[in-house]
Simulated assay, not measured.
Amino acid sequence: MPTTRRALLAAAPALAFAGAAEAQPAWPARPIRLIVPFSAGGAADSAARVITPHMTEKLGQNFLVENRTGASGSLGGNEVARATDGHTFLWDASSHLVNPALLPRLPFDYATAFTPISLVVTFPSAVAVKNDFPARTLAEFVAAAKARPGAVTVGTQGNATAGHLGLIAFARRAGIEVIHVPYRGGAAAAQDLAGGAIDAVFTTLVSAGPVVDGGRARFLAVGTAERVESRPDVPTIAESGFAGFESNEWAGLFGPAGTPPAVVQAMSDALVSAVAVPSIRQRLIQIGCVPLATRPDDFARFVREGREAMATLVREANIRAE
């Protein structure tokens, strides 16, 4: 039976769609590079390596975690900002919000170079003190700091990190003056705390946990809104006399600017699926994370508001990059 003109016209949209589908290769078409701008074994890197095996299963391609450290995380950020292969993503943290205020001459703009996909986990911050420090509560720590202005030493994971900014915010709120001691990572700060070289740390539970568990330091409070499941006996800073105070590190997933919505959705779905797996969720909790896997719109709002807040804090506290 001959094909009529009407039948050809009716079939045209379907044929055009089929041609477009053939022109667009399936995604992902090859392994996915996940750039982590922090050292291997740290909090952000550890969370990525817990989650990515499930994402490999979900999306059908391997996730290759690459640690690109340097320049407060901006070297890794630049690697993703200029990526055009459709298979390179950024696993970033709070430096993503702080760097625009500290590093004005970057070759890219944090506000426009990336597509927010998900706030995957948070890393509760914590105040911990060395064993012989004369404070068993946060209130006692504040009293000790007020009794010796500018004498109590507090280590963080580095200048302009989440720990440093959290310490500044807390010291302002508590009305205390302490000496900030920046380290190259929270684990190094925790080790000096355990050895008695510094009085306290304001860093993540992940970093300080081992020395506390080893009996060489003790927690006073955590910076989350609610008590942490893995440390239910440690009160929050908020319930220790500083209502509403919250300060934590986090890790989130970004694509380069212009990442197709379908790819954003696929990555978001894979992350939501991953943190819902009981074994993965439990492992994240064990290493000190709070699993979230928020959706893109929520993460974009978090990034936008956080960038504005950090810019204000950096300016008012006169923080400078090292």
Rank of each mutant, 00 (worst) to 15 (best):
P53H: 01
A43G: 15
R33G: 11
T84K: 12
A71M: 10
V120C: 11
A43C: 14
A71C: 08
P124Y: 00
A126M: 08
G70K: 01
W91Y: 03
A23V: 02
Q61V: 14
L106C: 14
V98G: 03
L59A: 08
V129W: 00
L64P: 06
A128W: 06
I117A: 12
T122R: 07
L34E: 06
D132E: 13
K58N: 09
R105I: 13
A43N: 15
N99T: 06
L97D: 06
I51E: 13
I117N: 13
G42N: 10
G76R: 09
D109P: 04
G73N: 03
N131P: 06
N131Q: 14
P104C: 02
N99M: 05
M55V: 05
G77L: 03
L64W: 01
H54F: 09
T112V: 09
L119I: 03
P134I: 02
V65Y: 07
S94V: 00
V129N: 02
L106W: 11
T115A: 14
V98W: 01
D132K: 13
A29L: 01
G42V: 02
T115V: 14
S46R: 14
V36A: 08
V36F: 06
T84Y: 08
R33W: 06
T84C: 07
W91P: 03
F89G: 03
G86C: 08
D109F: 05
T56M: 06
A71F: 12
A113S: 15
A126V: 12
V50S: 14
A101D: 06
I32Y: 03
N78I: 02
P31L: 10
R49E: 10
T88V: 06
D109H: 11
V50P: 15
A47S: 15
P134A: 02
I32T: 04
P28W: 08
Q24F: 10
Q61E: 15
P116I: 00
P25E: 08
H96N: 07
G86M: 09
F89M: 04
F108N: 09
I35R: 13
T56Y: 02
P116D: 01
A128I: 07
A126E: 09
I32L: 13
A111N: 09
A113L: 12
K130F: 02
P37D: 10
W91S: 06
I51P: 13
G60T: 05
N62P: 08
S125C: 05
D45W: 11
G60S: 04
V98L: 01
F114Y: 15
T69P: 10
